[in-house]
Amino acid sequence: MEYLSVEKRLSLVRFNIHSEPHIKVDTSKCIDCDYKPCVKACPAGLFTLDDEGRLHFNYEGCFECGTCRVVCPEEAIEWRYPPGGFGVSLRFG
C-alpha cells in the first residue's frame, strides 16, 4: 500500500463539524514553550508551526482523543467536547 498522508487518512473519517471550536489554544502561552509537544503528539496533525515558529491549531479533523491537553506543559489548551451529536463519528472504532 502506498504512502498515505494524514490528510488523506483523515478524509476517510466522518466529521460533523460544529461552527464553534471545541478546543481553544491560548497561543500567548506557547511563545515561551520551546518544545511545543502538541505539534508532535496530535495523531491528526492539527497543531502546526508557521515560518516564524508561531503555533496554529485547526479543530476540524479532531478525534477528540485529548492527547494535546495531557501533553501541554503550559496548560494553554482549553479542552471541551463538541456539543452532542457533533465532532468525529467513527464507523470502525
Binding site: M1, Y3, A44, F63, C65, T67, V88, F92
Partner: peptide, 21 residues
C-alpha cells in the same frame, strides 16, 4: 511501511483511521 505489515494488508483498501487515548 514494515514488510510484514505490508504483506498482511496487501490488496486491501483502507476504510478508516482513528486515534484514542
Amino acid at each position: 511501511s514494515h514488510p510484514y505489515i505490508k504483506s498482511l494488508v496487501e490488496g486491501g483498501t483502507i476504510v478508516e483511521y482513528s486515534a484514542h487515548m
